[in-house]
């Protein structure tokens, strides 16, 4: 089992004090040193073309941004290794929700498929063996894409796209995993039956907080699907979705009660000792991505994660 640290710790989407610095390259240069100082030697990169559209290439999250600032993907990996991230990139994650805003299904599938394929190629060039794809956008966004069609037709279309990506991933020697956030149409255990629609090479991304909020025990999920687990995300939460926030426009921000859904490691109620015990028993070689998603205080989250990893390993 290898621990890796997710740069999804940096919230670019939502308002926060001093957010402006997060668009400049110097911020990301220093972030590598902070992550390395926290004892992590590999990172996860959220693949977010959103920032390319505004020319924010200082944010190293896509093939384009890496090309603008570093020339090539492999040059970026060399730079990472020279700056403390000695094991490079362990995982990429694409959330295609960005492409759902049009509400037009063919546009969504076209853009999601295009950028997912680009992510796979980028991962291969970076020497990264895992990519994970959020399997559907939020329930709210998906309803607009479904329109007068049915959910089944929508999921069949998504499965068709994923099957194409699976072939690409196999060709490039990359493992394609599916992430099912608590706001997904395939939240919790709903994703299991969906796996029958896609090739066996497609694996699961077991994300602890997302499973927990969707009412599923992460350790049970890992135990029952051990042969399909391709990556595990350690995310923490204390959130109980009593008012169906998962159906709202911004489910990470429950409309009925403001709260931080994703917490720093150890600040929530996920039983990580039980999860870790299950991983050691069921899939001991899996990569575990530590993800204090959208942190309020990035340096603190890195150090809290290190404390957590040291403690949980003890």
């Amino acid at each position: 089992m290898k621990f890796c640290f997710s740069t999804e710790v940096v919230d670019l989407d939502n308002q926060a004090p001093n957010r402006n610095k997060r668009e400049s390259k110097y911020f990301w240069d220093e972030l590598n040193h902070l992550i390395a100082a926290g004892g992590f030697t590999s990172i996860e990169v959220p693949y977010e073309p959103k920032w390319d559209f505004g020319g924010r290439s200082g944010i190293p999250r896509t093939k384009r941004s890496l090309a603008v600032k570093f020339g090539t993907v492999s040059s970026y990996v060399t730079y990472l290794k020279e700056n403390g991230i000695t094991d490079g990139i362990a995982c990429f994650h694409l959330n295609p929700g960005l492409f759902a805003s049009s509400g037009i299904l063919p546009m969504f599938l076209g853009a999601a498929g295009h950028f997912a394929e680009e992510m796979i190629e980028t991962a291969a060039e970076a020497g990264c063996g895992i990519v994970t794809l959020s399997v559907t956008p939020t329930y709210y966004a998906a309803q607009k894409l479904i329109g007068e069609g049915s959910e089944e037709e929508f999921l069949d279309a998504v499965a068709g796209m994923i099957s194409g990506l699976a072939a690409k991933a196999e060709e490039k020697g990359v493992v394609l995993c599916l992430k099912n956030e608590f706001w997904s149409l395939l939240r919790g255990e709903k994703i299991i039956s969906f796996l029958e629609k896609v090739p066996a090479s497609v694996k699961l991304d077991a994300d602890t907080a997302n499973l927990r909020i969707a009412g599923v025990s992460p350790e049970k999920f890992i135990r029952e699907n051990a042969d399909r687990i391709g990556v595990v995300h350690f995310t923490d939460t204390a959130f109980e979705d009593k008012d169906e926030a998962w159906k709202s426009v911004l489910p990470e921000f429950p409309p009925s009660i403001a709260t931080k859904v994703f917490r720093d490691m150890g600040d929530g109620t996920v039983d990580f000792e039980a999860v870790l015990k299950e991983i050691k028993a069921s899939c001991p070689d899996v990569t575990v991505v530590i993800n204090p998603r959208n942190s309020y205080d990035i340096s603190r989250s890195i150090l809290r994660s290190r404390w957590f990893c040291d403690h949980i390993n003890a």
Partner: peptide
């Protein structure tokens, strides 16, 4: 230029 402002109104401000 505020980035996404995710809530319309926060009623539990002190607890938050």
């Amino acid at each position: 230029h505020w980035k996404t402002v995710p809530y319309k109104q926060i009623d539990n401000f002190r607890d938050f």
